[in-house]
């Protein structure tokens, strides 16, 4: 087999493999919530509004003001926290405002869940909040309103306050 034939075979193999992989990615995207690699354009028109709550160690559920809250640290200093400080992309930044979900609602809920866990791990001065809770109100393509409650993982406050 000469070089020319190898080259021809190589090109045909590359093209076939490329197209098959692309087709496989497109098909798998139909079954994935984030539609990644599937070229779903403007997949759905979902809107949502989220409100952030803090579950305190005394069991009270306290709503934050547009994702912002303040606490007294161990030394008596006032420390402020803000959802927007940590979460900035994918349209997740602004709470308490009706907005469009990027890509789709399922993937937005997935990232909101990750974001809750991310934020709860980054508020060492807050020794009151056990858990962050996000109440999400959403509707898909002009459908009925639906509700979801997302909770961050719980914190062991005693460990933090030491």
């Amino acid at each position: 087999m000469n070089f020319r034939a190898v080259r021809q075979f190589g090109i045909l193999t590359f093209c076939t493999a490329y197209l098959l992989i692309q087709a496989a990615f497109i098909i798998q995207a139909h079954f994935a919530i984030d539609k990644r690699f599937g070229f779903w354009m403007f997949a759905e028109s979902s809107r949502y509004k989220a409100e952030l709550y803090r579950l305190l160690k005394d069991g009270r559920l306290v709503k934050t003001r547009n994702g912002k809250w303040s606490v007294r640290a161990g030394d008596g200093q006032k420390v402020s926290y803000s959802w927007q400080h940590y979460v900035r992309d994918f349209g997740l930044r602004n709470l308490e405002k009706l907005k469009r979900a990027r890509v789709g609602m399922e993937v937005t809920l997935k990232y909101l869940q990750y974001a809750l866990n991310y934020v709860i791990d980054r508020m060492p001065e807050d020794q009151e909040t056990v858990k962050l809770v996000l109440k999400v109100q959403y509707k898909k393509a002009g459908g009925l309103w639906q509700y979801a409650t997302l909770e961050s993982r719980s914190r062991a406050l005693s460990a933090l306050s030491r």
């Binding site: 087709a23 497109i26 995207a29 139909h30 539609k35 599937g38 070229f39 779903w40 354009m41």
Partner: peptide, 12 residues
Amino acid sequence: LIYLASATSKIL
């Protein structure tokens, strides 16, 4: 493929 995928996703 992109046009096809986009059109199919919408039609389905």
